[in-house]
Design a protein around this nucleic acid. Structure first.
Lengths: 219, 219
DNA sequence: AATGATTAATCAATCGTTTGATTAATTTTG
DNA sequence: CAAAATTAATCAAACGATTGATTAATCATT
């Protein structure tokens, strides 16, 4: 009976988390405006007023979705720049970890990239940019270092980063087009993880290697 | 006075086109749900009822945006497969034309990729997939032909296509992130056309060449 | 005068949010 | 420990605002 309060808190947290999970799914599927609070409350099996009670409103719930993902993201943030491995190995690790990360929460990725495509700046937008810019800066440094130490060909770093994130976000965000391209339902987590992800990783590694490797051509 | 009716029709058409242009811009900036009919009407300097008078409703206006772009797209549709040029030249032409096409109507591209990311299938979705699948099939054929005739390395064709469209859509759709990456406002058409586009083209051509060229490595 | 174009006013529906009341849980008090 | 007091959680109902859509009246053109 000692931990009764703790148990209750945990249950409450579970309930809040459940609402957040349902909201994330619906936001990703229908967009912020498209997902009504009634719909979210219904899918989460809670009274509509609970959304405002817990999160202060729709926008607060939206922010809670981000808060949860951001805090979870920071835990596994680890710089590759200090490790004593080759530039190629760093890039490969980057490709691996970002692919894992994005495929693991594809719903959230959809929300992020949809938010980025909207021209309306909000409190969310800045947070997103801040988070993504960390990732961007990390890979940018790896690429620039690799070029500087002679491991990599002198390529357009920014465009290559666009390729890295663009390829991944295309497979996740343009899911309906990706499904047509692959010939299978890429919204199915099983297919996404067992087929798309390994193919994506393999493709990216090979392409980056081919593109970044110096060929000593004199034309 | 003979062509007066025609002139009127033309003026009306101009008005309709103007509404469509304004709608396209707002839809791309705020999404379908985010852009209200009142806002569109106000920006287009027309009475709100005119939207329903001309297009039958908001959805009809949305469809009109697609109709206009689709019809314009079909005019410049030309297969590269019949031309008697090398596979590398075909790919390069593909890269060029798609970059030109996407950068020319970046607003529409935003709408398309946002629509693709939503899980709700609609009458629009099928049209989009149909249009994009034509492009996809075209480049797929070029790649497969190139591999078959020995010009290209045997790569993962579907993933490479994801890279091609993903890189471009990243620069256009994730405009806020792209702006951070490039260090300039990529929503500015001038920067988009004079800086981003040539860099994108150059990058894609070089990377595709490096990746697709056979290196005869025996490891 | 008649047809089509345009407007202001209005419609029902839905939105996110708030309310007041009720129940459940926790703390305080005697 | 038990009763009272307080806090937290939950609910149905309703709120005002906004949505897309429609109406009926007015204007313009032939």
């Amino acid at each position: 009976m000692i931990n009764f309060a703790a148990v209750m808190t945990e249950e409450k947290q579970d309930k809040k988390d459940h609402i957040i999970e349902v909201a994330e799914k619906l936001f990703s599927e229908m967009g912020f405006d498209g997902a009504s609070t009634r719909h979210i409350a219904q899918d989460a099996n809670v009274n509509m007023a609970m959304l405002n009670y817990y999160f202060g409103g729709k926008e607060g719930l939206y922010l809670a979705v981000f808060e949860k993902r951001f805090s979870a993201s920071k835990l596994q943030l680890q710089s590759l720049n200090n490790e004593n491995i080759s530039s190629f190995e760093k890039i490969n690790k980057c490709i691996e970890s970002y692919a894992d990360k994005m495929m693991a929460n594809s719903c959230f990725q959809k929300i992020i990239y949809r938010e980025m495509s909207l021209s309306q700046r909000s409190s969310v937008t800045d947070k997103i940019i801040q988070m993504l810019s960390e990732n961007t800066s990390e890979i940018k440094k790896i690429l620039l270092d690799g070029i500087a130490n002679g491991s990599f060909e002198n390529v357009d770093v920014e465009m290559l980063i666009a390729t890295m994130f663009g390829t991944k976000s295309y497979l996740i965000n343009s899911s309906q087009m990706a499904s047509f391209l692959i010939g299978k339902d890429t919204t199915d987590p099983k297919i996404l993880n067992e087929e798309v992800k390994p193919r994506l990783k393999d493709h990216m590694k090979k392409m980056f290697k081919a593109y970044l490797t110096k060929h000593n051509e004199e034309n």
